[in-house]
């Protein structure tokens, strides 16, 4: 069943076999997200944050329950359809940046557009705009080993947002960054969210990230224990996360 919500998960269960036993990573998780949210799944390691992100990112399928992303039911997607959805509509930002090592920053950012068969002139403009957004237009020709951790993550953000996806999934995006770079990255993401209405869903246990969230969902042992709206840093109104 399709709906107008960006993400809708109902009674989501994910069980991983572990040798002869099983580990329940998600247990009856029901959540939904609207367009334009800046939300985060928080909780200790093993609480199911990444598993949830993987399922809504169509990289994994639930053991039971259902997940709808942009109106498409994850389990019903074929490999090809899931790849198409990721390519067109979902951006990923990883803890370890995951830049393609033999490509320059420019080529890394260009990659999703090549998959989308974007015409060359338009592609070039979009790539440079994205690099501009993250403040790395002057490092376009640098390769990943020549970039610092913060720069690498900014290139990864540019790569995730270059195709202007409605949804960006960020798994521990600041875990490998120092405080200054973390804030820089988060401010960039916040700007993207505000100016381009890109929805962000984080998986994190980093207090710096939590400080920027407008919605915080706490997961413990695969269950949602709290789901709260909160006031981001510097804003007024609700309680800060």
């Amino acid at each position: 069943m399709a709906d107008d919500k960006l993400i809708r998960a109902e009674n989501l269960v994910k069980i991983f076999p572990m040798g002869s036993s099983q580990v329940t990573a998600l247990s009856q998780v029901t959540l939904s997200f609207q367009t334009g949210e800046f939300a985060g799944l928080v909780g200790p390691s093993g609480s199911g944050k990444t598993t949830f992100l993987n399922i809504v990112g169509t990289l994994d399928a639930p053991s039971s329950g259902s997940a709808f992303v942009l109106g498409r039911e994850v389990e019903s997607l074929s490999h090809r359809e899931a790849a198409g959805l990721r390519n067109r509509s979902i951006g990923f930002i990883f803890q370890t940046f995951n830049l393609l090592p033999v490509y320059t920053a420019y080529e890394n950012v260009e990659f999703p557009l090549l998959l989308l068969k974007t015409p060359a002139a338009q592609r070039r403009k979009m790539v440079m705009d994205a690099l501009d957004w993250v403040g790395l237009a002057d490092r376009a020709r640098s390769r990943p080993p020549q970039l610092s951790g913060g720069e690498s993550q900014r290139v990864a953000i540019a790569r995730a947002m270059v195709k202007r996806p409605p949804l960006l999934l960020a798994d521990e995006p600041t875990a490998n960054l120092d405080a200054e770079n973390s804030h820089h990255i988060l401010q960039t993401m916040e700007k993207l969210n505000r100016q381009l209405a890109t929805s962000f869903l984080f998986a994190t246990h980093d207090e710096k990230v939590i400080g920027y969230l407008r919605r915080k969902i706490t997961l413990v042992d695969g269950r949602v224990t709290r789901d709260e709206n909160c006031r981001p840093r510097g804003a007024e109104g609700t309680e800060p996360c």
């Binding site: 490999h79 990721r86 990883f94 090592p101 999703p112 998959l115």
Partner: peptide, 16 residues
Amino acid sequence: RREIGTLVALGFTRGQ
């Protein structure tokens, strides 16, 4: 392995 995962996340199919 990580690069393979990244390619899939970016929209490559396994076949690709």
